[in-house]
Design a protein around this nucleic acid. Structure first.
Length: 436
RNA sequence: GCGGCCAUAGCUCAGUUGGUUAGAGCACCUGAUUGUGAUUCAGGGGGUCGCGGGUUCGAGUCCCGUUGGUCGCCCCA
């Protein structure tokens, strides 16, 4: 057993695992580019206050935080949103709007390991700043859907639950609750799916039992699964805020339908997402089988940039975590084999033939072909075996017989056919053979 | 922070009521094999049995502790 181990919850990526990770990142990056998002990056280490300001002191227990040699309280980033909010805020007046940015980055949380959750993980983050209307939500939900179905995941595999914290606030306000009570009810709403009636325990302890008629309305509301049911429940109340908000919902769902995304999206007021900084529409993606934790989550956070000390700037964003996502791809058999094979494997007769082989190898590499060869002198039989196992498509045979004739033999490792080509025509010959 | 289960070779695992020098398959390396492939054969390297203590004539095996893994609770930005 090795003396040194990696830290608990941290992952090492051996080449096969890294190939899978890179594949996922590559597809996410391409998809974000297709949607017109620009990639950014930022520090891994941030001032601790950046997170305290947003989430309060208790967040520190979940952070990798310490005091640096200059006496600064710092933390490894647990999420990207405060950082990107700061970056955008600092240049808010100079950036063309809408600001559509994305990143793929590593995050750290001091938590217990669980399936799909570690202490260090990667997230794809996408955000739109400067757009207050539902157009931003539509664009992000479309991007989220394509980030998943670019891998072959379909509406059979995942869905996006869409909810609205504003609607909850307006509705509960119309029912006569004040803000602190509303927040407590939302905690219960968030937990209702898991705990049923016990979800209201904390509320009851703090404020006394919730009025039965209000509770009945809350329970009915969180089970709403369609726009028409929303309109039926809220339309008759004559509340201006609610009426306006319903118009936003129509716009949002109309846009989603026009983009062909309705099959992925379900209205579900049972989602409220932790009470942190979300201010309006919120959404979460889940696997259809319900076996994994959330694949992605996001929502609107219109006040964060201002809270960080910059001009107010509306914002919407979401993140996809790599751990649960990779589990989902594996479960559905959608992770392709990541063979890291050469194009060409060279078989070299011996020390006499090595210089000629090296010349050919380098000219092929200069032309962009992936070429490998045995470092030591090895019997021909072994070399052919190695060539076969390497996964290369072609073997190039630099033997004494060939070189005496001024040629090299190209062997197609799949169909075992061979042909001879002059030494100085190797590059075009390999190109032709690989293209055939 | 709390709880369940687990820990023997790089991987998957055997290992008898506690008993000689801890095994197998796969993988890796060498050779048979100095010009043609997934086969075969022969050989090899690799273990302080997670770590520390205890019980015992004797511990991979039993007991305690600890570290790590895994799954769940709290939390989930």
């Amino acid at each position: 057993m090795a003396t040194f181990q990696s830290l608990p919850g941290f992952r090492e990526f051996y080449p096969d695992a890294l190939a899978c990770r890179n594949f996922i990142f590559r597809v996410w990056r391409q998809t974000a580019n297709i949607y017109g998002f620009s990639e950014y990056d930022a520090p891994v280490l941030e001032p601790l206050d950046l997170y305290k300001a947003k989430s309060g002191d208790e967040i520190e227990a979940q952070l990798f935080s310490f005091t640096d040699k200059g006496g600064r309280e710092v933390a490894l980033r647990p999420e990207m949103t405060p950082t990107v909010g700061r970056m955008v805020g600092a240049k808010a007046n100079a950036l063309k709007r809408p600001i559509k940015w994305f990143s793929i980055a590593e995050f750290y949380r001091y938590e217990r390991m669980q399936k799909g959750r570690g202490r260090c993980f990667n997230q794809f983050n996408a955000d739109i700043f400067g757009e207050a209307g539902t157009e931003a939500e539509i664009e992000l939900i479309a991007l989220l859907a394509q980030c998943l179905n670019a891998f072959g995941l379909t509406e059979e595999d995942f869905y996006v639950r869409l909810s609205d914290r504003n609607l909850w606030f307006y509705y509960l306000g119309a029912l006569g609750l004040d803000e602190t009570r509303i927040r407590a009810v939302l905690v219960a709403v968030d937990r209702y799916e898991k705990y049923g009636d016990d979800a209201f325990k904390a509320y009851t302890e703090e404020f006394g039992a919730l009025d039965e008629s209000i509770k009945a309305k809350v329970l009915a509301f969180l089970q709403i699964k369609s726009l028409s049911a929303l309109e039926e429940t809220l339309g008759g109340l004559g509340d201006d805020q609610l009426t306006e908000r319903l118009a936003d919902w129509r716009k949002l769902l109309g846009g989603i339908e026009a983009m062909g995304l309705t099959k992925y999206v379900e209205v579900d007021l049972g989602v409220v997402r932790g009470l942190a900084y979300y201010t309006g529409f919120v959404f979460e993606a889940f696997d259809r089988k319900g076996e994994l934790r959330a694949i992605a989550g996001g929502g609107r956070y219109d006040h964060l940039v201002e809270k960080l000390g910059s001009p107010a700037l509306p914002a919407v964003g979401f993140a996809i975590g790599d751990m649960t996502f990779a589990l989902l791809l594996e479960q559905r058999g959608l992770m392709p084999d990541m063979v890291q094979a050469s194009d060409v494997y060279c078989v070299i007769g011996g020390a006499e033939e090595r210089p000629a082989a090296f010349a050919g190898i380098q000219s092929l590499r200069a032309a962009g072909y992936r070429v490998d060869y045995p470092m030591k002198e090895v019997a021909f039989g072994k070399q052919f075996k190695a060539a076969n196992e390497s996964g290369a498509k072609l073997a190039l045979i630099y033997g004494g017989d060939e070189l005496a004739k001024g040629v090299v033999k190209i062997r197609d490792l799949a169909d075992r056919s061979e042909r001879e080509v002059p030494l100085d025509e190797i590059v075009p010959a390999v190109r032709d053979t690989l293209q055939a």
